[in-house]
Design a binder for these strands. Structure first.
Ligand SMILES: [Zn+2]
Ligand SMILES: [Zn+2]
Length: 657
DNA sequence: CCCGCCGGTGCA
DNA sequence: TGCACCGGCGGG
């Protein structure tokens, strides 16, 4: 059976990049590494053999992004008796190999890696000058050798001359261990640093060039531009998106005996040289580049497997349920994503800025980015409190105009927290979970299946847990869930059964500034449009104010458009989490965790100001995001690559109180 | 009223 | 924390 390995971080990253429910996002870890290699190395990929001269003068640095524990299996690392190191990644030879990240994690995959990383502490920075020698303690898993390799830093991001590779120089060639002889030139002045660090969650590599901060051992974050920051989820969407075009995936083959060998034991179809020791002498395998002959250890991606996989997948329309394969994907913790039923829950890293979680707010953040205005909001120091508490704590809410007059804040654009969508949109927008009422399904936009997609029209599989629970399959019927195979890929809100019986226990409110200029329009690639003629008719409301439900807001548009609002409820009973204060707190917590910087004044008005990077960083909180995804493999016959598409079906988040 | 199943809860 | 459970929505 075909095997696949995947890291959850990248899944989340990719999904965040898409910002779209019901959309597929290709996953590729290797292209990310490749990107890093090219970016940090400032060089080009070496062309095959013909590049003889050029190859000797164009050193390549491969930087293991450590984005996950599996990607590095693509690297081949050789050290000969002269300590000359050869690094091959995805068939590309590099002269320098630098690894960053995750060494500090017990049991992390990096411990299984071929070489250990450059000494890095989580959250700390390693400063590397041009010309510095980097010692890497190698470890070859195949034979247990522990070669020590030394490298010289020859290029840093801000130094890397994209057009003048030949200007790079090295001072002491004897200290340089590389596979290609370098022509020594004048010693390079270490006028530029490269910082290599892990991000706070240890999942991502952040690099930047800083000009001569010799007296400052601390990373100057002001120099960290968006372009060279590969940060947490959501911060690197552009980069990730850009480099994910060549979607590919490491495919592995299960053992012949059908034994389920877990991750790490299987070599790849892609030229991966990683393997656990297994005695499968004489086998061969094929990758994208060449055929390898196996000696005493085996890669399990046999040629037959590739052929078989190709046949299995070839011709299958993308996204059809029948396309599901028994592909095994592993989460980072080693647990298996079983995509027999193609739907699984994955967990993302803790991060405070997952844009795809809070729909409304993320839209607004994006919107503001688009117009070049604030990307962060004023922090929530005081969310709206009930009057008695406010008075007790002597909290006063500044008047709107006063605040503007103070000059501390800019008047924001209208911040109506609404969105809309068209019925035929493929990207239904789900209501913010954090705003959902506790209890049962009131108040939220209940999504329902589209009825048109292949999944909707599939038959119950009869095998998944949901099916087995069904009475018609002899189950007890207590779970009452949809068959996993039949989970719709493009759910949409329940078609406006407008005459909802008015159940006044719940009440709906909107967060709306008093003076509406215009509602923020949602601008996404999807065909989502802002409702017309709204905004002015929306009345401003105090957060704590009790609001009557308004159901007739759609009447001027057809049912194809529906508006959803951030809601809160004004139950009188002060039942735990479900009071106004708590709801508001939750709202802001959500924003806050997204990196937003929010301040409220007056009655439901929100203002913003820019915060710098440092300040913002201190505000971030942790949030655990999990996503329900459907995994569908796709076989690229031409390139002989297996890719997995992840379709985001659902997102939920949790955070500690 | 029936029924599929959404989405939230509580418990192991 | 994942999953069994279930109230009740929404469509027919
Ligand atoms: Zn099923
Ligand atoms: Zn559907």
């Amino acid at each position: 059976m075909p095997y696949g390995l995947l890291s959850t971080e990248n899944i989340i990253t990719q999904i965040s990049a898409s910002l779209t429910l019901g959309r597929s996002a290709p996953v590729d870890t290797r292209s990310i590494e490749k990107f890093l290699a090219l970016y940090l190395g400032g060089g080009k990929e070496k062309e095959g053999e013909k590049d003889d001269d050029e190859a000797t003068t164009t050193p390549m640095i491969y930087v293991d992004s450590s984005l996950d524990g599996i990607s590095r299996e693509h690297s081949k690392f050789e050290v000969d008796e002269n300590d000359v190191c050869t690094v091959e990644v995805l068939g590309i030879k590099y002269d320098l190999f630098v690894r960053g990240g995750r060494d500090d994690e017990e049991g992390s995959e990096s411990k299984k890696g071929i070489n250990k990383p450059v000494k890095l502490e989580r959250g700390k920075l390693v400063r590397v000058h041009v010309g510095d020698t980097v010692i890497v303690d190698g470890y070859r898993q195949t034979n247990g050798e522990k070669p020590t390799c030394s490298f010289k830093v020859i290029s840093l991001p801000s130094l890397a001359p994209s057009d003048a590779d030949e200007t790079r120089s090295y001072d002491n060639m004897n200290d340089v261990s590389m596979n290609s002889p370098m022509a020594p030139q004048s010693p390079a002045e270490p006028s530029t640093f490269a910082y290599i660090t892990t991000s706070t969650d240890g999942s991502f590599l952040n690099t930047t060039g800083v000009t001569d901060p010799s007296n400052s051992p601390i990373l100057d974050t002001s120099s960290v531009s968006d372009n060279n920051f590969l940060g947490d989820t959501g911060a690197s969407t552009t980069i990730i998106t850009d480099i994910s075009e060549n979607s590919s995936f490491t495919s592995h083959e299960m053992m012949e005996d059908g034994e389920d060998k877990s991750m790490g034991e299987l070599g790849g179809l892609d030229g991966s040289d990683y393997m656990d020791e297994r005695d499968v002498s004489g086998e061969s395998f094929v990758d994208s580049f060449q055929t390898h002959q196996v000696e005493t250890t085996a890669r399990f991606g046999t040629e037959e497997a590739v052929t078989s996989l190709s046949e299995t997948l070839n011709g299958q329309p993308s996204g059809e349920p029948e396309q599901q394969l028994e592909t095994h994907i592993f989460k980072k913790d080693g647990t298996q994503i079983n995509i027999d039923d193609s739907v699984t829950l994955i967990k993302g890293p803790n991060c405070g800025k997952v844009l795809n979680v809070d729909r409304e707010l993320s839209e607004i953040l994006i919107e503001w980015d688009d117009v070049g205005t604030p990307t962060s909001w004023e922090p929530v120091k005081n969310y709206q409190l009930k009057k008695e508490k406010r008075e007790r704590n002597k909290i006063q809410y500044t008047d709107l105009d006063d605040l503007i007059a103070s000059g501390l804040f800019e008047k924001s654009q209208s911040m109506e927290l609404t969105y809309s969508f068209q019925d035929d949109s493929e990207t239904p927008v789900k209501k913010t979970e954090g705003m959902k009422r506790r209890g049962s399904g009131h108040g939220g936009t209940r999504m329902s299946r589209c009825g048109k997609c292949a999944w909707c029209n599939a038959d119950d599989c009869g095998n998944c847990k949901a099916c087995k629970d069904k009475i018609k399959f002899g189950g007890p019927g207590v779970r009452k869930q949809c068959c996993n195979k039949r989970i719709c890929n493009s759910k949409r809100p329940g078609q406006g059964s407008e005459k909802r019986s008015v159940k006044k226990k719940q009440k709906k409110g909107v967060v709306t500034p008093q003076n509406e200029e215009r509602p923020l329009e949602r601008k996404t690639p999807s065909n989502i449009s802002a409702p017309k003629g709204r905004g002015k008719q929306q009345k401003a409301r105090a957060p704590c104010e009790r609001v009557e439900e308004e159901e007739e807001q759609n009447e001027e548009n057809d049912d194809r458009q529906k508006e959803t609002f951030v809601t809160f409820y004004s139950d009188d009973d002060d039942n735990g989490d479900d009071n106004d204060d708590r709801r508001w707190k939750r709202l802001f917590e959500t924003s806050y965790r997204m990196g937003a910087d929010i301040h409220t004044v007056g009655r439901g008005q929100i203002f913003c100001r820019l915060v710098d990077e440092k300040e913002r960083a201190t505000m971030r909180n942790k949030e655990q995001v999990s996503a329900k995804v459907r995994v569908t493999p796709e076989w690229d016959k031409d390139n002989a690559k297996l890719s997995l598409n992840l379709t985001l079906l659902d997102v939920r988040r949790s955070f500690e109180e």
